[in-house]
Design a binder for these strands. Structure first.
Length: 274
DNA sequence: CCTCTATGGCGAA
DNA sequence: TCGCCCTAGAGGC
């Protein structure tokens, strides 16, 4: 689930559900009891996201900081009114509720309550986020064009730009026909600007739909006479997790390799640009 | 039952 | 670069 679009979508949903509402916050398994106690009974001011970080401001002036990591999930459901039916299921690390909506947090990498200064420190370490209106792609370009690391690694570095994960990096490189191993300092400036423009196009779609759909209309299953993608790892994609399958554009076998500790996918035929 | 995997990131070596 | 943390679902035996 969690690339930047997931967190922005979640922030929107939390803001809709809880802004202006007094909330109960509990840590059913006790792991985050300290954080829950600081939030319990407070009124939510606003929820927001920066990169893959979620921030929920409350009326004490403190902020709930959540990072979902690789496996974390934060689900919102309508309270049924039946306490037995609403009991936490699974490893619920934190539950927030106003009696109308229940938010359950599972498997987070971070769940803590921070001061405004601590929040600033975190945000200050992040590169520009394509989902934020204040984001400046030049901030990322300054680092990219000085680095010898491959562009596929730089895209995943949250200090260079934030919110991009393992699906978006493979997909945006494919869509722009870029060689994933091209070093940042040999990447054309126009290629970077194309990547950024594409991310600012793709990621808001992810926020709206909740899944990562990257396939252009002319390559969609109906247009190509193939079966729609049937798995839980996003929507229609060109290369992500399609190792050894045929490229939707040229038919070549999709390649995979570990790059920067994560599985990268690309088409060696389509992606030759720098 | 078991093992493996995952849209992430940290710290040790 | 590697091990490790966290949860849940899938697949193998």
């Amino acid at each position: 689930m969690p690339e930047g679009h997931t967190l922005h979508r979640l922030a929107n949903a939390l803001d809709d559900a809880f802004a202006g509402r007094q909330v109960a916050v509990a840590s059913p398994q006790g792991r985050f009891a300290e954080a829950a106690a600081l939030l319990h009974g407070r009124t939510v001011d606003a929820a927001s996201a920066h990169g893959k970080h979620l921030f929920v401001d409350v009326d004490s002036g403190l902020t709930w900081h959540v990072h979902l990591g690789l496996i974390g999930k934060f689900t919102l459901t309508a309270a049924s009114g039946d306490p037995a039916a609403d009991l936490p299921r699974g490893e619920v690390r934190a539950r927030i509720s106003d009696g109308v909506t229940i938010g359950d947090l599972r498997g987070p990498a971070a769940c803590e309550v921070l001061t405004a200064g601590e929040v600033s420190d975190i945000v200050g370490r992040l590169g520009p986020d394509p989902l934020r209106a204040d984001a400046d792609p030049e901030m990322a370009w300054v680092r990219i064009h000085r680095s010898s690391r491959p562009i596929a690694a730089l895209l995943m570095d949250q200090a260079v730009l934030s919110g991009i994960g393992n699906v978006y990096r493979s997909e945006v490189l494919f869509r722009n026909r870029l060689n994933p191993r091209r070093p940042g300092n040999r990447l054309a400036r126009r290629s970077w600007l194309a990547i950024w423009a594409d991310l600012t196009y793709l990621m808001p779609i992810g926020v709206r739909t909740g899944s990562i759909d990257t396939v252009r209309p002319e390559h969609e299953p109906a247009a190509m006479g193939r079966e729609p993608r049937q798995d839980d790892h996003g929507g229609e994609v060109y290369v992500y997790r399609r190792a050894n399958q045929a490229c939707h554009v040229c038919g070549s076998r999709i390649r995979t390799a570990v790059l920067d500790g994560r599985n990268l996918f690309w088409c060696g035929n389509c992606q030759r640009r720098g």
